[in-house]
Design a protein around this nucleic acid. Sequence first.
RNA 1: GGUCCCAUCGUCUAGUGGUUAGGACACCGGCCUCUCACGUCGGGAACGCGGGUUCGACUCCCGCUGGGAUCACCA
Length: 485
Amino acid sequence: MTVRTRYAPSPTGALHIGNVRSGLFAYLFARHNRGAFVLRIDDTDRERSTRESLDEILESLRWLGVDWDEGPPDPRYFQSNRFDRYREGARQLLREGKAYRCDCTAADLDGMRKQAEREHRKPGYDGRCRDKRTAAELANTELPDKRAGRDYTIRFRSPREGVTVVDDLIKGRAVFENRELDDLIIFRSDGVPTYNFATVLDDADFGMTHIVRGDDHLPNTPRQIQIFYALGLQPPAYAHLPMVMGPDGQKLSKRHGATSVFAYRDLGYFPEALLNYLVRLGWSHGDQEIFSRAEMIEFFDFAECGKSAGIFNAEKLLWLNFHYMKTLPIERLVGDVKPFIARRGWKIPGDDVWLAKMIATLRERAKTLVELVDFASFYLNDEIAIDPKAAAKFLKPEIGPALAAVAGELDALADSEFAETSIQAAFTRTLDRFGIKLGQLAQPVRVALTGGTVSPGIYEVIAVLGRERSVRRLRNAHELCASAQ
RNA sequence: GGUCCCAUCGUCUAGUGGUUAGGACACCGGCCUCUCACGUCGGGAACGCGGGUUCGACUCCCGCUGGGAUCACCA
């Protein structure tokens, strides 16, 4: 049997990184087994589902490179297009006496819950409508439709005895007492099926062999298994992944700050880094930390998944991003950096070869693309702002002549010679002439060229900046020195 | 509160009865050096507690404690 897994986000918000990790693991398991990865949109909640969320989810997945074999834009993979199927499933259960009509209103239920809480009983539904109707009445029950006056719900008749066993691929065996499971609503009074019911029908219809999801779904699993049985279907295998927590140990959510895939993309992270970080949170392969997509697929296995929740560690993600910053092909960075330059409102250089040289000098100094562009300001703009404190410290009158001399040396270099080795030679000649050490000249030059005291190696800065701009900035600095006191 | 899940450095983790308990992030120090980085070398840092089982437990069992999830006409 070929493996089929699915990822079923609901388009009610941004694609969250804790959530997308479940999708990633489902994806890796399917790819590892040369099976199919299905993307399904759980949009039965029409109130909260939005087109914008759907677009963001799809775009996030594409950006990460988590590609699906079946799913959108195919309309069959939207729950909102499968209502006929859900109605058919509900009618089947009604016909067979495995579901029943419940007349309790939302207010009734709420009152019951509060009452139970006061009396320290468990808050579940007590099943008061369970035996109110005969089999024949149930078989003829129409599905709810508030607008047509059928303001009731349909509940699943859950078994009250015995146990339901979940043999989880990650957690092992969990046994649930059936008497703990109350009769859950499968069809709302507005004629919309609920999650647990629609999911079962979908997973069955789409031939899912393995359900990979967060372990917050574990309590739902015995209910879903019972629905499979009631429908006369064989439940799939389950793999419940431990959750991702925020630094406070609570389930990761928007209140923990940046948590969406888009947020990290916009912060200048690489999809490789995010994927690599996510896959190592809850899964390991010996001591290996860096995984290419191909390696993830090759090595992935539920047996190597941990059982305990993990805390999201932004610093490790940053380190991974830095790793990819240093090792990704430079051409890739050239393409990736452009939107970030544009966002700063700066002109994007037309020369990719030059951009590549620029990036080469900065990639070991920036952990994100945003940071890299920040550092690149002096390369990308003709005018630079000189930090007053740096100027006061390094652009003193006595260094002015040396600055002018270096400018002259550089100006004399032929275009074909304008490279690091000849630039270094120009420095050496100046140093000899003035009898000073490189340390005494490099910082003033650095301030002159970049406006600050921190930059890549001074020869590479000059090489990238080019003769014209370097000379101009050095001469400007020379004047500053002269006027300083 | 009921049910379920979980428990090795601060964090992510390796470890499957006998190890100086390993790696990574972060942190601290040395080296390299034109600044900052990169790189490199080194350092501190963990088996929650109590019972068993065993010649021997981080590893197996039980209890406790602690943490988490979930108990909707959300998904």
